[in-house]
């Protein structure tokens, strides 16, 4: 991974009529980096990816790739690969012909072509399926064909659109490992689009969390997981209890409530994961509205005067029944301080 900028989006904007899907997005990506575009549906991540591919024309802004302005370059000349969510394999062509499709358009023939196709299939472990039709493969296998089809073209950037969302849980893990291996072996720059924060955290070198067509926070998985900047990011990475801070107090359903401990300077809000809530003692009380067993721990949903609170307790401890009133505390020193609430 080198540090110089390989792909950059500059003030990228895509609007259709009145709706602005992507709004002045700036993003720089280094060669060989694995970036995840993360966010809920409608946040503009797919639109951004399609603009990079050249499938959508930006309303304004610039896309630079490998030192060249590609904003107006057609999708067929950009040398960008895309693994579609639905795989988008050509149903009338065999696995071999699917992988050979792009190479043939480049003019490859004969032994060169065959060598490259078989090499591509070997990378994804599908050489024995070369003569099958896509419909005769499982979802995971189709996904691999789609990956091989893009990779044999040696794309400058490989885009992946929710590539794991159509796979079952076990295959998803397998495919994730495979994607990491391919990236390591080839060093290709990858942009991976997903709405699943677990996937993003596990895979990415850097995560770009998007909201409403703009970047909410960019950082390493550790950054986002431990140091969210806004309530939106905090909520997305599992800080389920977020309160705005006003004059050193928490703004709650019950008015301003003092915090135990000191609020870090400059914090606009504080956020606690369920595990960070001190359950059993403290100044606040809540009655148990829901309990769910989560393996090593038990999650409690409490109705409190602060609003609903999610807390966690060791599953080895005796269970608290519905309706029981529990004391709890939100200690400031455990909380993640946020720069912005909204």
């Amino acid at each position: 991974m080198s540090d110089h900028v390989y792909l950059s989006l500059e003030a990228l904007t895509l609007a259709y009529g009145d709706t602005v899907a992507v709004d002045g997005l700036d993003l720089s990506i280094a060669e060989g980096e694995l970036i995840t575009l993360l966010g809920p549906s409608g946040c503009g991540k797919t639109t951004t990816m399609r603009a990079v591919a050249g499938l959508l024309k930006p309303s304004s802004g610039r896309i630079m790739l490998d030192g060249r302005d590609v904003t107006r370059l057609g999708a067929n000349k950009r040398q960008v690969g895309l693994v579609f969510q639905s795989y988008a394999l050509f149903p009338h062509l065999s696995v071999y012909e699917n992988v050979a499709f792009g190479l043939k358009l480049k003019g490859e023939r004969g032994r060169d072509l065959e060598g490259h196709v078989m090499e591509g299939l070997k990378t994804v472990g599908l050489t024995q399926f070369a003569s099958r039709k896509p419909a005769e493969l499982s979802g995971g296998q189709q996904q691999r064909v789609s990956l091989a089809r893009s990779m044999v073209m040696h794309p400058k950037v490989l885009l992946l659109d929710e590539p794991l969302s159509n796979l079952d849980a076990r295959l998803r893990l397998e495919m994730r490992t495979e994607l990491q291996r391919v990236q390591r072996e080839t060093g290709v720059t990858m942009i991976f689009v997903t709405h699943d924060q677990g996937e993003a955290l596990a895979l990415a070198d850097r995560i770009v969390l998007m909201k409403g067509g703009a970047v909410e926070q960019i950082g390493t998985p550790e950054d986002l997981y431990n140091r969210p900047k806004s309530a939106f990011v905090a909520d997305f990475v599992g800080f389920e209890n977020v309160f705005a801070v006003e004059d050193g107090k928490l703004r709650t359903a019950d008015g301003a409530v003092p915090v135990s401990g000191t609020v870090p300077a400059g914090a606009a809000a504080l956020a606690w994961r369920p595990a960070m809530v001190a359950l059993g003692s403290g100044p606040h009380h809540g009655s148990v509205r829901g309990v769910s067993f989560a393996g090593g721990t038990r999650e409690y949903l409490l109705d409190s005067s602060l609003g609903p609170i999610k807390a966690e307790a060791d599953a080895a401890l005796p269970v608290h029944d519905l309706g029981t009133t529990l004391a709890f505390d939100l200690p400031a020193e455990r909380a993640a301080p946020l720069q912005r609430y909204a």
Binding site: A53, G54, L55, G74, A75, N76, K77, R78, V80, G81, L82, F84, S86, A88, L89, F90, P91, F101, G102, L105, K106, R149, S150, M153
Partner: peptide, 18 residues
Amino acid sequence: LRSDIEEAAVLLGSSRIG
């Protein structure tokens, strides 16, 4: 017929008519 196969073909270097 899903329309994403046309996009896939274009990204692999084909023209739209192609």
